[in-house]
Every structure is written in structure tokens, then in C-alpha cells.
């Protein structure tokens, strides 16, 4: 069941590859705008890098949330999912995982390259990638709640950012914080464990909350 929904969403993403690339290029453009706006001074860029990459990842992940449920809502496949004898939470989990595979993973893979533009040391690049790897699934999971609540509403895209971005703050703090800690020569284990804890918590609660939201939105 979980496999079927993931397979389905990946298949759909494959047939619409341009969507995946749009998000990825959005991420690249946002990160590249910062040196243009604050100047190419390398020391400053190096301190900014973790925050910039993380904020850009937040925005990119959020922008793609609209599509998580809305296409399925429009063509009626979502209401069929609600009528499935299997647990809706599991289905939502599958959709969030598929969303992460399609939008999160490309960001994780692209991040080290963007980090090089900011002259991050090798080890910091590694930490940045690890935090994104652990943190982006949290974004997809929490985002699923926002996407489910704003389903079919006018101005849903902007609204979802209001709902979801404040909830992203802890991940942002610890994600960017880990890289900063590493660059400052301090340990970053605590940061990673906390992001890991957020991931576990959102794995447990977010699908359930998003499933209830879907039932509310489709009633």
C-alpha cells in the first residue's frame, strides 16, 4: 500500500519532470541572489551560507507543497483515497515521502555545490548535506498538514506559507546551527540528534494530523 502510493507519485513526477526541475532551479536562483545583494565578500558569505541555503530549501520545499494534494483533489483520486479501507495516515505518509523524494532529495544533492559557491570548507559541506538530508523530510511531513488544510481554498498557495513557515523554524534553527557550530569548531551532534527527534515526531504525528485535515477539507 505504502509502496503503491509512493510508486504512483514517483511515476507521476517522472511524467512531469519539468515540475521537479522548476523547484530545483528556484532553489539555485534564491541561493545565488544573496551574493548579488550583499556583495561577494567571502568571509561574510561563508558565515551566511548555512542560513541562506536552509532558508532557500525551506522556501523551495514550501512552494511545491501546493501540488502534494491539489492535483489529486481536482481529478477525484484524492476522494478515492479517503475511501480506501487502508489507513489514510499511511497514505499521507506515502505521499509525504514521495514529495520528499521528488523535491527534498534534489535539494540535498544540490546543496554541496551551492555551498562551494559560498566557499564552505569540506567538512561544513558534509554537515550541511547531512542536516538537509535529515531536515527536509520534516519539511515535507509538516508541509503535508498545511497543504491538506488549504486544499481547494482561494489563495491557498500564500496561505500555506503563513501556516507552515512558523512551524519550520525549529528545523531551520538547528539545521543551520549545526553547520555554524561545525565551522566554529564546536560539536554538532546535539543539533543532529534534535533534528532527528523532530523527524521522528513528525513521522508519528504529521501524517495523522494531515489525514484529519484531509477529511475536514473534503467533507
Amino acid at each position: 500500500m505504502l509502496m503503491w502510493i509512493i510508486k504512483r507519485d514517483l511515476l507521476l513526477a517522472m511524467r512531469r519532470q519539468s515540475d521537479v526541475f522548476t523547484i530545483l532551479f528556484f532553489f539555485i536562483i534564491v541561493v545565488s541572489l544573496f551574493p548579488l545583494s550583499v556583495g561577494p565578500e567571502m568571509n561574510m558569505l561563508r558565515t551566511m551560507a548555512p542560513g541562506v541555503v536552509w532558508v532557500a530549501a525551506l522556501l523551495a520545499s514550501m512552494l511545491s507543497l501546493g501540488r502534494m494534494f491539489s492535483n489529486d483533489y481536482v481529478d477525484g483520486t484524492l476522494e478515492q483515497m479517503l475511501l480506501s479501507p487502508q489507513s489514510l495516515s499511511l497514505l499521507v505518509l506515502g505521499k509525504a515521502l514521495a514529495h520528499w523524494l521528488v523535491t527534498g532529495i534534489p535539494l540535498v544533492l544540490m546543496a554541496p555545490i551551492l555551498g562551494i559557491q559560498y566557499d564552505l570548507p569540506i567538512e561544513a559541506l558534509f554537515v550541511l548535506t547531512i542536516t538537509l538530508l535529515l531536515g527536509t523530510p520534516v519539511l515535507s511531513l509538516i508541509g503535508a498538514i498545511g497543504a491538506a488544510l488549504t486544499l481547494g481554498l482561494r489563495g491557498g498557495g500564500v496561505l500555506v506559507s503563513l501556516l507552515v513557515l512558523p512551524l519550520y523554524i525549529p528545523v531551520l534553527i538547528f539545521g543551520a546551527g549545526a553547520v555554524e557550530a561545525n565551522m566554529a569548531g564546536v560539536g554538532y551532534d546535539a543539533h543532529l540528534s534534535l533534528i532527528g527527534a523532530f523527524l521522528l515526531m513528525s513521522l508519528v504525528f504529521a501524517p495523522w494530523a494531515a489525514a484529519s485535515s484531509l477529511r475536514v477539507s473534503l467533507e
Binding site: 488544510l149 494530523a209 485535515s213 475536514v216 477539507s217
Partner: peptide, 10 residues
Amino acid sequence: KAGAIIALVG
């Protein structure tokens, strides 16, 4: 209901 869910999540 939607407000309740977001308030509780908050």
C-alpha cells in the same frame, strides 16, 4: 475544524 487542527498543531 481546520482552525482547530492548526491551533492544536501550533
